[in-house]
Design a protein around this nucleic acid. Structure first.
Lengths: 344, 344
DNA sequence: CTGTTAGCGCGTTCAC
DNA sequence: GTGAACGCGCTAACAG
């Protein structure tokens, strides 16, 4: 029976199709490849059989035989629940799927070990390359040799102890500009709520905050600086503590959306107007800014980070391993948006 | 040279490892499989070679030979930029990765054709099963035969014209309860902002809205009902139109976060207090509710939708095709949260 | 124009 | 305890 295998619940194979069409497997392969050298009637018979059996070519077997592209690209992010990374993933998707590549998604939860496992696994699945938001400070498992010279593009954080293409956000510039706005509004005591300094973005954004002060001939009061915050609750607590002190800041700079949320909560609870500037836009920030807390948002296009990473990767995939030029780095710009902000 | 292939940039194969360890490929396979019948010293030699070459077993070749599980599961969502779906994806990830399965993610942008292509592609990549948020009303391409009897679980929307396991949200119940709250606050004219009725969630939530009215002996004024809205701008425009009419509603019910956002914008611009109830919680909804617009949120655990879908799929994958019982359906509950809401 | 042979990387089966 | 042969589904290279 031609359908024997298919009837088993197993997927039909090329041979099943061939048998049904009364040709050899090779001919089926040719038809599916749009090889010109196939008779018109043979062709129709084969296509009819394909259709009747619901046959789909086995891409795994195909790429095994062809020895090259699997059509799979790994995407490793730290936290998909963060809108930044889901937008990034969407940007990656958009570009890669337009090129016929599928995305293998993994979430590390910011755990370096899990990242190691995930990367090993992607290699085992013969991905054509991967885009990674690195979780730890050690990236030896991402070094070319460790991934069989597969192309790797880093997103959001730069390579450390290795070389690779990467797409960054203008963390320094954005933080500097946001802080400068607060200063030019007349704020002189500006608190800082940040994520751990080991994370690149946190460190850069702190540098920007500091640089803006220096440029204005000011020095931040370090008693109002909190780094190492990771969630909204911690940020809120830190903000409350800072704002409750004597000579409390009149403004707060926040390094990401979680910090900003904590700050907004604290300021809202406080009842006293405190200006907030922070990275990452969020839904309804405009309404919230006008309504209650003056908001200065350092925004950027997260999709674009993903799109650029995907494009860099595509270029590398197109090249023979080791053939390419040196690692490239591209920086996605930020822009500052102000809602309900006014001089202090 | 043992490293000849690896040095080519190509990944080392089992034979490379075997050559380096001075054994046959078969022995390497045994070591990697933890087969007991291998000499202790042979074992160490093999592992040393694996390590030296950075060898990773080719999972594709492996699953081809084993003829079964690829370890891949397809996840097809309509819009990853929507927090609901990114949380769902996270829940799926969490459960599946704990079982050693990888997630192949695709975004359809709510296009039925793209969904067809994506599903075909997943089949071609030999996924062990898939979780789909169906985009169109026709789902013939998801029928068992079309996907080679691969397990399919639907999320967020029920099967139409076919049978499959699915995980839903209590759309009807949530909408009914949210609307009931508005009614018990004294609202009698409640507008409705909804997504197209062809989308299951939209239809169900409208039913809930209507049922709550009926239960209270009321009848919704259909001139204040707008369905077919798809984005924030359209929702805002609709809300402005409704609220600008004579005898305008004193409250609005919104079927999702985009509708709610549009409504919040419109109400905020209006300056007159209008109560808003809507599906989907969002960041800082509490602050916003207290600060400005009274908010009644119908919330639910999107991660849980993903987790349940993943568990249903795992059960099906464990079974022989066609062996399983009838399609199951599970409903994730909603809960109503109120921020700054008060009697009209 | 179409079929046969061989082999991608791996694992099962059976020898030794 | 270890190896050789064979085949998973597919296709390049060579017949005819």
């Amino acid at each position: 029976m031609a359908r024997a295998r298919a009837a088993d619940g197993g997927a039909p194979t090329m041979r099943d199709v061939a048998a049904r069409a009364g040709v050899s497997a090779m001919t089926v392969s040719r038809v599916l490849k749009d090889d010109p050298g196939v008779g018109a009637d043979t062709r129709t018979r084969v296509l009819a059989a394909v259709d009747a059996l619901g046959y789909r070519r086995n891409e795994n077997a195909r790429s095994l035989r062809l020895g090259g592209a699997s059509g799979l690209v790994g995407l490793v992010v730290t936290n998909l629940a963060n809108p930044f990374y889901s937008r990034l993933a969407l940007g990656v998707q958009e570009v890669l799927s337009a090129h016929g590549l599928r995305v293998l998604l993994s979430n590390t939860g910011e755990h370096a070990e899990r990242e190691r496992d995930v990367v090993t696994d992607l290699v085992a699945h013969q991905v054509d390359g991967m885009i990674v938001v690195p979780a730890g400070s050690s990236q030896s498992h991402l070094a070319p040799a460790a991934v069989h010279h597969m192309p790797v593009v880093l997103a959001s954080r730069p390579p450390a102890g290795m070389d690779a293409d990467c797409v960054l956000v203008d963390d320094f510039g954005g933080a500097e500009e946001g802080t400068r706005q607060l200063i030019s509004d007349g704020h002189r005591r500006i608190g800082f709520l940040g994520n751990p300094p080991v994370i690149y973005t946190g460190a850069e954004r702190f540098r920007g905050y500091w640089a803006a002060h220096e440029a204005a001939g000011l020095q931040p009061d370090e008693q109002f600086v909190r780094r190492g915050l990771t969630d909204v609750a911690a940020a809120e607590a830190a903000a409350r503590a800072i704002l409750g002190a004597a000579d409390a800041p009149t403004a707060l700079f926040c390094t990401n959306n979680r910090m900003s949320q904590g700050a907004i909560r604290a300021v809202h609870a406080l009842g006293r107007p405190v200006a907030i500037a922070g990275f990452d836009d969020f839904e309804l920030s405009d309404v919230l800014g006008v309504l209650g807390v003056p908001l200065t948002i350092v925004a950027y296009d997260a999709d674009e980070v993903g799109r650029r990473a995907a494009r860099l990767l595509l270029e590398r995939i197109g090249q023979a391993a080791g053939t390419g030029q040196a690692a490239r780095r591209t920086v996605v710009p930020t822009r500052v948006i102000r809602y309900g902000a006014a001089p202090a």
